[in-house]
Design a protein around this nucleic acid. Sequence first.
DNA 1: CCATAGTATACGCGATTGCGTATATTGACT
DNA 2: AGTCAATATACGCAATCGCGTATACTATGG
Lengths: 84, 84
Amino acid sequence: MTAQIARNEKQLGAILRRARRQADLTQEMLGNQIHLRQATVSRLEAGEPAVQLSTLMAALSALDLELVVRPRSKSSATEIEDLF
Amino acid sequence: MTAQIARNEKQLGAILRRARRQADLTQEMLGNQIHLRQATVSRLEAGEPAVQLSTLMAALSALDLELVVRPRSKSSATEIEDLF
DNA sequence: CCATAGTATACGCGATTGCGTATATTGACT
DNA sequence: AGTCAATATACGCAATCGCGTATACTATGG
């Protein structure tokens, strides 16, 4: 899994969904790991704006992901290199 | 401003606060730009877990930041420094 | 086709959001 | 010390969270 950019909730949700599937987890399995309901995972992945930060961070850590905050890249080509 | 890693809400809040200050904005100015109250910006920067995703994304875009999701690096920069 | 796993959606609940407004508290500078 | 800007907290409010539980919908394989 390569680094992916999220500029809104929808993109973030989509990234999480891909990551979860790649980890071969169902929403329910993921939810059990982090003590969130399957319905809550569903809302997170759907990109609903009002889900809470803790929900996001819990999902990220269960999927072994981390967040990087950086200035917006103006070039369309993602310069993932400068993360390393 | 260089890319920064956030693995929890507190780190995320701290990053946002630094970015806002570097942009020479007060919480109130930032809040006005994104139609959030100064008090809400305060809670976000304090790392309160229950603030909403939309609040985070709004602040990021106002600060011209973006989110990158990537697999956790085995050791964070600070952990590496701790080795020396 | 159809069964079944997986996902989305719904109900009532207590808790907490962000809101407007207002007030403490803190910090930086003279 | 004293002043003023910046930040943190508080009140009541409507809205919405995530909860437990349960049920619709949607795929995908048999």
